[in-house]
Design a protein around this nucleic acid. Sequence first.
DNA 1: CGGAAGATCCACT
DNA 2: GTGGATCTTCCGA
Length: 207
Amino acid sequence: MAGFRILPRSFYRRPAEVVARELLGRYLVREAGGERLVVRLTETEAYLGAGDPAAHTYRGRRTERVRSMYLGGGHAYVYFTYGMHHCVNVVVGEVGSGSAVLLRAAEPVDGEAAMRANRGLAAGAPPAAIAGGPARLCQALGIDRKLDAATLWRGKLRLVEGDPASVETVERTPRIGVAYAGEAASWPLRFLAVEPSLAAAPRRRRG
DNA sequence: CGGAAGATCCACT
DNA sequence: GTGGATCTTCCGA
């Protein structure tokens, strides 16, 4: 059964690839507009800090935007990109490590109607369209830069125990959209919870 | 101070 | 499969 016990700060004080893997199946809880929105995490990516050419903190870069990435495990790092999208990360490691886990996809657990409204989706849109993608996830949960540096162990954006046992198989692949990062573009730091129901489903024919 | 690109998504062909 | 939207952030000059 899914638990709503808040993940302790020690959970985050570990390497990014470990936390990225263990975040699968956990629940992200967002209190907004008098409602509680809950999603189950299904896809994450690890960003390793100063030694990772794909990370915003590559070579120890310290700018105003990435300030929250150095706050230590358990904080949120929210950035704005492409002129219209937000993405949310879970900061991991010790204070000053500059490492984090990007939350790339999740599926609705509670408050689905409100999330559909946040996304402006038509009634018939499939559940995967609600939070299947880093910017979609933020839009569904109403996450923007006001939540940058938020504490995930208390407040209006929280990470809880969830249902990690529901993740039967984890697939690892290179990260998405980091072709500029040279060799690091091939590092297998993307983690996906393989859904048995989807794995068994017939494949769509290619065109 | 200007230019370029971005950890994306959507509509259209 | 391709391109447009849209603007913050960063870096080099």
